[in-house]
Computed example of a mutant assay.
Amino acid sequence: MHETPYENAPSWFSQWESIGLVAWKDKNNDGVMQYGVGQALVPTKPTFLDERGTSGERLLANSPSESNNEIYIDRDIIVLANPEIAELPNWVIALVAAGGVAAALSTAAGLLLVISSAISHDLLKKTFMPKINDRQELFCARIAAAIAVFVAGLFGIYPPAFVAQVVAFAFGLAAASIFPALFLGIFVKSITREGAITGMLTGLLFTFCYIVFFKFIEPSQNTPENWMLGISPEGIGTIGMLLNMTIALTVSRFTPGPHENVVNLINELRLPPSESRNT
C-alpha cells in the first residue's frame, strides 16, 4: 500500500475508510499514499469532514503530524481486516467475523453471569443481606447485570484504549487481585482470611492506581522513562500479584489460622477423597 495512488487503493481501504477506522492525509498533495513509522494525524484519532479531496478521499479536520506517515489505521480492526488485506475468499472473511462475534458474545455472557451472581449471591446474600429470599436475590442479580451492561456500553463508546490494551488491563487487575488468593488458598494452608483480603486489596489498589495515573491522570508521563522498573501499565499486574502474595503471607503470620473446616476443604481440593481421609 506504500507509494500507492489513492485511486488504486485496495477495496478494503475504502470500505474501512467509509466507517471511519482508516484515514489518509495527503501531506504533500501528490495523491500517493505513504505509510511509515509514526502517527499520521494530530490528534491521533481522525475527525472527518463532509467533503472529499481531489483524489476522492475523505477530508480530515486533523492537522498533519511531523512524520512522513500519511495513513491512519485503527488498531482494533487488525484481526477483522487481515483476511481482506490478504485477499482471502469471502467465506474465510465471514468465518473470521463470525468467530469474533461469537467470542465477544460468549465472553460477555460469561462475565455478566459472574458479575450478577457475585454481587447478588456472594456479596448481598452471604454478607450484607442474608435474609433476602430467592426472588429478591434474582432481582438484585438482574439489576447488577443491567448496570454492568451500561458500564460496558460506556467503555465501548468511549474506550480508554484499544482492545488489546483493555484486555491487558483486565488480566493485570485479575492477576493482582484474584489469582494470588486462589493460588495461596489452595497451596498454602496457613493463609488466613485477613491475609487474603489484605493482599487482594493491596494488589488491586496498587495496580488500579498505576493504570489510572498513567492512562487518565498524567497520560503525558506514560513513557518508559517514568514507568516503575520500566514496566508499562499493561504489565504492572505482575508487580501487583507479587505485592499481593507478599502482603497476604505477611499478614497471615500475625492473624489466627484458618478454621478446621477450611483446612479440610483444602485437603479435599488437593488430594483424592481416599487420601484426604487418611491424612
Rank of each mutant, 00 (worst) to 15 (best):
Q15R: 15
G257M: 09
V96R: 05
D30E: 04
L229S: 03
L59M: 09
S63E: 13
T44S: 15
P233H: 04
G31Q: 03
T246A: 13
A248V: 03
M129W: 13
F214Y: 15
P83S: 02
F183T: 03
L204N: 02
I132Y: 03
T255G: 10
N8T: 12
T279F: 05
L88F: 00
A141Y: 07
W12N: 01
G257F: 05
G38I: 14
W12V: 08
L105F: 12
T54V: 08
G53Y: 04
S55N: 08
I239L: 15
I247N: 02
D134K: 10
E87H: 00
L41N: 07
Y72D: 14
Q136M: 15
I147A: 13
S14G: 05
P273T: 05
P64S: 08
K25F: 14
I85V: 00
I231L: 13
F128G: 06
L182S: 13
I85W: 00
M241T: 00
R142G: 10
N267I: 08
V212Q: 11
G230Y: 12
V167W: 01
S117Y: 13
R58I: 08
I231W: 06
P64H: 05
V166Q: 08
A181F: 02
M33V: 00
S276N: 02
D134F: 10
I247P: 00
G38R: 10
H259T: 06
N264A: 11
F128W: 15
T54M: 06
T127Y: 14
D134V: 12
I147M: 15
V163W: 09
K25W: 10
I178T: 06
A141H: 08
N82F: 11
R135T: 07
A152N: 05
I197D: 02
I197Q: 06
L271H: 01
G56S: 08
L269W: 05
L49C: 06
G36I: 02
K27F: 05
P160G: 14
T279E: 07
M228H: 11
S55E: 14
V263E: 12
L182N: 14
A161F: 10
Y210Q: 12
F208H: 03
N90Y: 09
V167Y: 00
N28R: 00
F128S: 14
D30H: 01
S63K: 08
I93F: 06
V79D: 04
R142C: 12
G203E: 09
T223C: 01
A144V: 09
T279C: 06
A86Q: 01
G199M: 09
L123S: 10
I217S: 09
V92H: 09
L173T: 07
R135H: 01
G153S: 15
F216N: 12
S117C: 11
